[in-house]
Amino acid sequence: MSILLVAKKDFQDAIRSLTLVAVVGAFTAFLAFKTYFEFTMTPMTTTTASDLYQSSANAVAVIGTLLGYKSIVGERESGSLKFLLGMPHTRRDVVLGKFIGRAAVVVVTVIVGFVVVSAHYAVLADSPSLTAYAVLVGKLLVPGVVFVAIALAFSAANRSAMVATWGAIVLAIVFAFAWDTVLNMIESLMLPPDAAIPNWFHLVTRLNPKFFYIDANTLELGNSAPFYLEPWFGGVIVAGWLLIPLGLAYLLFERSDLA
């Protein structure tokens, strides 16, 4: 109950932020451009809704990070955390409530963006599919929520908003760009060009929460795939990315002096 009250308050507060309105606007514009680009500029290949995933996932990762990185350290610095913890809420309620509140905001942001752009998609796509579009949006919500958790964990574990800000920038760069880039470099420079890509490489790719859904089926590996490339392991990866950062951050937050 306490957790949901904190979540509701946080949602009410965050959803009124002008910065959020600007972020939703920018995201929608980006999505509109990307949809146009994917469906009209690449006539040689058949484009489907899922081709929008990779670039949207990067944008969603950045949005999740933006929503999370200041959520707790900001309240700690301003002093509103004293107001919050003057009430019968525990520090655990605050961490979880904030996470749920901000996760709800990222869900709303992504859905608003895609709903606005859906008309655009319906017109541009050769064979628009509502199911494919909905699957795309649903899949994107996962990294959205995971990046809220990671950034929020960073925010709970730090005393200074400056450190949290730099942390957020590093997180966004690592997950949205550096991880993919490094893997691409390994693939093209170090792996033998003719041989099949080794399973461990797929696992490392998949450990990035953006690519949690890559499994034996999407890779068309048949029945020979190890357990960590089975579909259910995606759930383990996502759960790990949610629980480990939030758990560690909670332990630090629980022990620290807030004033």
């Binding site: 507060d13 309240e75 002093g79 509103s80 004293k82 107001f83 004033a259």
Partner: peptide, 11 residues
């Protein structure tokens, strides 16, 4: 009523 508190500006 703590000292050095802040309220939620948007609420």
């Amino acid at each position: 009523l703590p000292q050095g508190f802040d309220v939620y500006d948007r609420l």
